[in-house]
Design a binder for these strands. Structure first.
Lengths: 330, 330
DNA sequence: GTGAAAGCGCTAACAC
DNA sequence: GTGTTAGCGCTTTCAC
C-alpha cells in the first residue's frame, strides 16, 4: 500500500509538502508541485481518507438524508450527486429516513460523531423543514438544500418552478384552452405552491378570471388526483384541460377522464409535472415538466465541497411535449 | 467530543477493555462489560470510525456498486440495506456506475485505497458478471451478491424466481388458460432465464405442449415487449394470456393488446414480474410477482457484516393478484 | 516556501 | 481477564 511517505520520498520532499500539494494549499513552488504530482501519479497514490479525517482534515464523505416516496426522483439525485462526488474524490453516503421520526436530529448527531461527513445534503420534505434545517446547521458541517424555498444564502438548489408552471400554461393557452383546471400538490410542499402561483399568474396575465371552482386540492398521490378530477369534471361547465401538480396525480386525472367517458387529449388535455418514467409509459404519454435532477444532485455536492463555485441561480427546467394535450373541441 | 479514553476513565478500566467490549471481543468479565457499556451510554459515546479504520479495524462502510435502469428496484434495495446498516452501526455508500465502463475494477481499487469499505454489495447486472465478481473478490474485502445465479458459497441473495414463475403460471392455468404466451427477458439476465424455466416446467407438468411460436424474445424494455407481443398476437391461433418477464414489458403487452382491439383481461390476460410502482398505476392494474427487495438489501448487508448469520436460503416472493387476469373467453 | 514533530482516536500485539 | 505500548497515515502547529 502506497502512502504519503512513499510519494514524499520519490519526489524528494517532506510529507508536509505532499500534503500541501494534494490539498491545493498555497505556498508551494510550481516546480515542486509538479514533481509531487508526478510522483503521486507514478505510484498511483490514493490518500487514505480515514487518516485524513483523523488528522483533522476532511472525511470526503457527503451524506444524503432523505425521505421521499418517489424512487425515480431520489435515484436521479443520487446518480448526479455520486458522479460529482467521484470527480471530486468524495463518496456519497445515503441515509433514508422517516421524516416523522422524532429523533432525526439524533441521527444527524450520530452521523457527525461516527463518520463526520463534510456536508449534509437534504431534499424535500426534509429540506423544507426550516426548524430541522436550522438545527442541523448548528451541529456544524456544511449543508446543501434541494428545495424550492429560498433562504438568504444560496444554499438552495432548485429550478424556477413558478416559471416552469407559467411556461406550460403558455402552451395550454396557446392551444386555445380557456377553462383550465388545476390540481394542487401537497400543502407542505413549497414547490407545489410555486406551481400553483404560476398557474394563477398565467391566467391573470392572459386576462382570464381565476375561478376557484376550477382549483382542487390534491396530495401528490394518484388517488387524490383522481378524486380532485372527479369534482372538476362534475362541474356544469367543465374544464377543457387539467394541470396536475405532479405526474402521479396526472395519472389520476387520466383515470377520472376515462370514468367520464372522455378521450384524452381530444376532450381533455392533461399536464403533469416531474417527468417520472411513468409519464412516458402511460397512454397517451404525458406532457410534463422535467427538472434536471442529476444536475441538482451534482450542484448539491458542489455547494458542500466548494460553496463559492456552487450555482447561484436556478437550474434550467425543460418542458416535455408529448401526447396528452390538444386544442380544445369546437 | 467524547472519546474512548473518557469512557475508560469513567468505567475505571483501560481503553483496550473498552475497545474489547465495544467490538464484542471475548475475554471480558460480564460485570466489567456491563460497567463499560453503562459508562458509554451515560457519556453518549460514539466511536470515531476514521480512527477505528486507521488503527486497522473496520471502516463501518459498505459500498453498493450498481448499474440499473430501474430506480424503484435500486431505491428499495437502498432502503433495506441502509436500515440494516444503521442497526449495525454501518453506513451505506452508493456508487452508481456504467457496467460497460472499462475501468470498473480501477474504481473498486480506488474505493479500497480511499475509504476501505468493509464489503461491497453488487446487484445485477454487475453481480452476474462472474469475471468482474472474481476480480473484486481478489481485491480482498467481503462481497455480497444480489443475484439469481448461484455459487458454491451462499453469498448470493435471491428469491426462487423459477418457483415464482411456476406459482404465477399455476394461477393462469387455474383460470383455465391453455395457450399462454411468454415474453423472455434480457438474455444476459440470469433471473430471466429462471422465469422462462418456470414457464416451461409449468407447461410440461400440466401436460401441455411447449410451443416455440408462443415464446418471443424481449429485452426488459417497453418497446421490446410491445414488438414481441405484436408477433404473438398475429399468430393464427393467438394466446389467451401473455406472461411478460418484467412489468415494463407487460405494459408493452398491454399496448399491443389495445392495438389489436383486445380488452384486458377479457380477451387477453397479462402477467408481469417485479411489482414496480407502475404496475399499480396502469389500468387494468397488473398481476405480478413481488420480490422482497428491502429484505434482500438488508440480507446483503448482513452477509457482509456477519457472514455466518446471513440467510442461506431463498427469500420469499409474493404473488400480487390484481386486475389483469381473467378466465379465457368461451 | 519548506520541513520536523506532535497527535488525531482507535486497534493489535504482547505483556502481565 | 486486563493493561501497556506502539503505531495506522494523515494534517496541524510552529520552526526555519
Amino acid at each position: 500500500m502506497t502512502t504519503i511517505k512513499d510519494v514524499a520520498e520519490r519526489a524528494g520532499v517532506s510529507i508536509k509538502t505532499v500534503s500541501r500539494v494534494l490539498n491545493e494549499e498555497p505556498h508551494v513552488r510550481a516546480q515542486v508541485k509538479e514533481r509531487v504530482l508526478e510522483a503521486a501519479r507514478e505510484l498511483d497514490y490514493k490518500p487514505n481518507r480515514a487518516a485524513s479525517r483523523l488528522a483533522g482534515g476532511r472525511s470526503f464523505l457527503i451524506a444524503h438524508l432523505y425521505d421521499n416516496p418517489n424512487p425515480s426522483y431520489i435515484s436521479a439525485l443520487h446518480i448526479g450527486a455520486a458522479r460529482r462526488c467521484r470527480e471530486l474524490g468524495y463518496h456519497l453516503v445515503v441515509e433514508p429516513v422517516n421524516s416523522q421520526d422524532k429523533d432525526l436530529l439524533g441521527l444527524v448527531r450520530r452521523l457527525f460523531a461516527t463518520i463526520a461527513p463534510d456536508g449534509i445534503l437534504l431534499s424535500p420534505p426534509l429540506s423544507e423543514n426550516t426548524e430541522f434545517v436550522e438545527s442541523v446547521r448548528q451541529l456544524g458541517g456544511r449543508i446543501a438544500l434541494i428545495s424550492a424555498t429560498h433562504g438568504d444564502e444560496w444554499t438552495h438548489i432548485s429550478t424556477d418552478e413558478r416559471g416552469a408552471s407559467k411556461a406550460i400554461m403558455a402552451h395550454l393557452l396557446g392551444l386555445g384552452h380557456r377553462r383550465i383546471g388545476f390540481v394542487r400538490g401537497h400543502p407542505q410542499h413549497f414547490g407545489a405552491t410555486l406551481r400553483y402561483d404560476g398557474y394563477c399568474q398565467s391566467l391573470v396575465e392572459a386576462g382570464l378570471e381565476l375561478e376557484p371552482a376550477l382549483v382542487a386540492q390534491g396530495y401528490f398521490d394518484l388517488q387524490s388526483g383522481l378524486e380532485a378530477t372527479r369534482s372538476l369534471l362534475a362541474l356544469p361547465e367543465r374544464p377543457t384541460a387539467i394541470f396536475a401538480s405532479n405526474d402521479e396525480m396526472a395519472v389520476g386525472v387520466l383515470m377520472a377522464a376515462r370514468e367520464f367517458g372522455l378521450n384524452v387529449p381530444e376532450d381533455l388535455s392533461i399536464i403533469g409535472f416531474d417527468d417520472t418514467p411513468m409519464s412516458r409509459l402511460i397512454s397517451p404519454a404525458l406532457t410534463t415538466v422535467r427538472q434536471p435532477l442529476e444536475a441538482m444532485g451534482a450542484a448539491g455536492v458542489e455547494t458542500i465541497v466548494s460553496p463559492d463555485k456552487a450555482p447561484r441561480d436556478y437550474l434550467d427546467f425543460e418542458i416535455i411535449l408529448r401526447d396528452s394535450c390538444a386544442p380544445p373541441r369546437g
